[in-house]
Amino acid sequence: MKTVDVIIPAYKPGEKFIRQQRMLQNQTYPVNRVIIVNTEAEFLDRDILKDYANVYVRDITAAEFDHGATRNLGVSLSTADYFLLMTDDAVPKDEKLVENLVRMMEGDDLKQVPSGKDGGSYGDATASDKVEKNCKIAAVYGRQLATEESSVDEKYSRNFNYPDRSFVKTIDDLPRLGIKTFFESNVCCLYRRDVFDELNGFPNHTIFNEDMIYCSKMLKAGYASAYCAEAEVLHAHNYNGIQQLHRNFDLGVSQADNPEVFGGIKSEGEGIRLVKGNALSLLKKGRIFSTIRLIWISACKYIGYRLGKNYKKLSRKTIMKLTMNKHYWD
Rank of each mutant, 00 (worst) to 15 (best):
P163K: 03
K180A: 00
D153G: 11
E148L: 05
S150I: 00
S185D: 10
E132D: 11
Q144D: 08
S121T: 00
P114D: 09
A127T: 12
Y162F: 15
N134H: 12
R176V: 08
M105G: 05
A138V: 04
D173F: 08
E149G: 03
D94Q: 04
A127I: 11
L174Q: 15
K155Q: 10
C135I: 06
D94A: 03
K180G: 03
K96L: 02
K169Q: 11
T170M: 07
E148R: 04
T126W: 09
G178D: 12
P92Q: 01
E132H: 10
R165M: 10
D109P: 03
N134C: 06
K111C: 13
S115G: 09
I137K: 06
K130I: 14
Q112W: 13
F167T: 02
D173C: 05
L101V: 07
K93G: 05
E148N: 11
N161M: 03
L177A: 09
K169Y: 09
I137S: 03
S128I: 11
G178S: 07
D108G: 06
E106Y: 07
V131M: 12
D108L: 11
S157L: 08
E106I: 00
E184A: 06
A125N: 10
T126V: 04
F167M: 02
Y156M: 01
K93S: 07
M105H: 13
F160D: 14
D94Y: 04
L145N: 00
K96G: 03
D129H: 06
V131N: 13
R176L: 06
E95I: 04
K130S: 12
R103L: 09
S166Y: 11
D129W: 09
L101T: 03
K180E: 09
F182T: 10
V131E: 09
E95L: 05
L97P: 12
E148H: 08
A139Y: 09
I179P: 13
Q112S: 10
A138L: 04
I137Y: 06
P175E: 07
E148F: 06
D172G: 05
T126E: 13
S115A: 14
T181P: 06
G107Y: 09
E154C: 02
G123V: 00
G120R: 00
F160L: 14
K136R: 04
T147S: 02
T170G: 05
F160A: 11
G116W: 04
V152H: 13
R158C: 05
R143V: 01
E99K: 14
T181L: 04
K111R: 10
G142A: 01
Y122M: 08
T147A: 00
E184H: 15
N100T: 07
F167G: 02
K117P: 15
V98G: 05
A138N: 13
K136S: 09
Y122W: 15
K133M: 08
